[in-house]
Nucleic acid binder design. Structure first.
Lengths: 195, 195
DNA sequence: GGCTTCGTTCAATTTTTCTTGAACAAAACG
DNA sequence: CGTTTTGTTCAAGAAAAATTGAACGAAGCC
């Protein structure tokens, strides 16, 4: 079974990352230098460390690595980023970035910010713990607990046609499960309040 | 293994079509399988439902299915079981059963019970929520939070040689991370107490 | 309208994780 | 002691999950 791997290994990126993208040779004509967007700068050591931190946090929550990378990059960035920025700096596919961003957005962990005169969507990391937790509860925890409710109901039915001797035992078990379930439900608001 | 893992199907992936119903686990094959010779009784519908419940709970925590099956079977059993019982009734390999049992044992979720005149180890499920939670915290949550501590220290160092302008921003970020970390640490005792 | 940019989707592929099974070690038997 | 029972280990295979990339639709732009 898997296990806690607390080890340290610094790179999110595998080995030798190719120097840069094989940019199509810019035709000599272009003189226009643009301030906003240039070739994506490589990640700094600090950025890498921050991203790595989120990658492992997010993995611990059972979410895919790319989600951690994206959130980490946003968190480490003073200004909002577009999907392309993310793709280029993280070297992940557009597909991954799109999905990851949509997921983060659905939990309220990444928010779209309006940028005047820009067609593209810009994202920034939600950095209020309380909001992050609330989103996670709404999006991930709550749904599961709710499905538990149905399961318990189904168990109640099944127990009815359980042969005599076993029935009492199972009834006790289900009661205990119900108790656990209700405790978990009551915990959620406490969580939200505390964090 | 992960720490908090809480979302069940934490995939950011858009679930194509969530047939939200919990399909009974390993049911159909059972009866045909055992030809002659004293065999373990097939799982009852109730047992299957209970096991299924734990399988999905455990998956939500990022643990392997077999761990959920084993705990579920123990939980649904009035008397303690041996590794062989588990292998036979669950139709999983000895290897899986051994590992799963050891893991559950390490968290205090399954305990060895002494049975007079028996050479084999008998296991029963820990059924006190408080103890289960405490074990999970000690075995899974705490270790991860501790590794976070080291990461933060490393970040502090990295920030020192961060070029001027960025430094302040990063310093603020790291401070925030440290704040989150300490909140998480303070949450653990609350968790243990509440549940 | 035609062209380009942005972003999404999803089947195929890659990566990661889990499970199996056979080889072993330890201990009890006799 | 040799044998049998009990349980562990771990490489290899199977299964599950994440990532890619190309095709596509929806706007914006000129």
């Amino acid at each position: 079974m898997p296990v806690v791997k607390a080890g340290e290994h610094p790179h999110p990126q595998p080995a030798p990352s190719p120097p840069a993208r094989p940019a199509p040779l810019p035709s000599p004509a272009q003189v226009r230098d643009f301030p906003p967007v240039a070739a994506a700068p490589a990640l700094s050591t600090t950025e890498i460390e921050i991203i790595d931190l989120f990658v492992s946090a997010v993995r611990a929550l059972g979410l895919p690595k790319s989600v951690g990378e994206i959130y980490g990059l946003l968190f480490a960035s003073p200004e909002p980023l577009t999907l392309d920025h993310i793709v280029e700096r993280l070297h992940i596919s557009k597909g991954s970035a799109s999905q990851g961003l949509r997921f983060l957005n659905s939990l309220g962990a990444a928010r779209k910010v309006y940028v005047a005169g820009e067609r593209r969507d810009f994202f920034q990391a939600e950095d209020q713990l309380k909001r992050l937790v609330a989103g996670f509860i709404r999006g991930e925890l709550r749904p599961h607990l709710e499905s538990g409710q149905e399961r318990l109901a189904r168990l109640d039915l099944l127990i009815q046609n359980e042969p005599g001797p076993g029935r009492d035992f199972f009834a006790g078990r289900v009661e205990r499960l119900r108790n656990w379930h209700s405790k978990a439900l009551r915990l959620l608001p406490i969580l939200e309040r505390f964090l």
